[in-house]
């Protein structure tokens, strides 16, 4: 089918005609790697294990509400606000504390996606795609990557780096 061929032609990652890897696989791999770079911890543990008690693993089992940490601290706050006293927080505050939402849910609930395109929002502010082609940088040593791996399309610079690449990260990871 002609349309499919033209689409593949435009994907930048395919420099080497002999590369057998699907550009979509490369794109997916890049996306995963970028997500990884946004992590706070390498081993992404469940949020609770960062602050929760190690001894009680089953505690956060099935109930939707999770244990919160902010009310278990011995701090002295001045004044008469709920934060400073043992007064019960308002419903709004308690639900924000007990039912955290992830970013995707928050964006969906905010309804900014359905606003007209002329309204500036979080989604419309992103920088545009570059008009220049990407540079090839050796995935092993960081020098210019003159060649690309035929299996996984990662760039490398010389035979030395090629062998390291083949041994360690071929078909595994990006850059």
């Amino acid at each position: 089918m002609p349309p499919k061929r033209t689409r593949e032609h435009h994907v930048r990652q395919t420099y080497v005609s002999t590369t057998t890897i699907d550009p979509r696989v490369v794109a997916e791999r890049t996306r995963k790697h970028l997500d990884q770079l946004e992590r706070s911890n390498y081993a992404e543990t469940s949020i609770m294990s960062v602050t929760g008690d190690d001894n009680e693993p089953g505690k956060y089992g099935k109930s939707r509400a999770r244990q919160i940490v902010s009310d278990k601290r011995n701090l002295k706050l001045l004044g008469s606000s709920p934060a400073a006293t043992k007064k019960r927080s308002t419903m709004n505050v308690r639900s924000a504390l007990l039912y955290p939402k992830n970013l995707a849910t928050l964006i969906e609930e905010s309804g900014i996606a359905s606003l007209p395109a002329s309204t500036p929002t979080y989604l419309t502010a992103e920088a545009p795609a570059p008009s220049y082609p990407p540079r090839l940088i050796c995935s092993v040593c960081g020098y210019w990557g003159r060649y690309k791996c035929r299996k996984c399309a990662l760039p490398y610079c010389d035979q030395n780096c090629e062998s390291v690449h083949a041994e360690t990260r071929c078909e595994k990871r990006v850059v």
Partner: peptide
Amino acid sequence: VDWDAQKAIWDGLFSTDVLGIDTTQ
């Protein structure tokens, strides 16, 4: 996105440990 964590940190900030202010005033 994590208000529980944010409140825990703000509590410490407003408390006598750091700023020591009466938030209501």
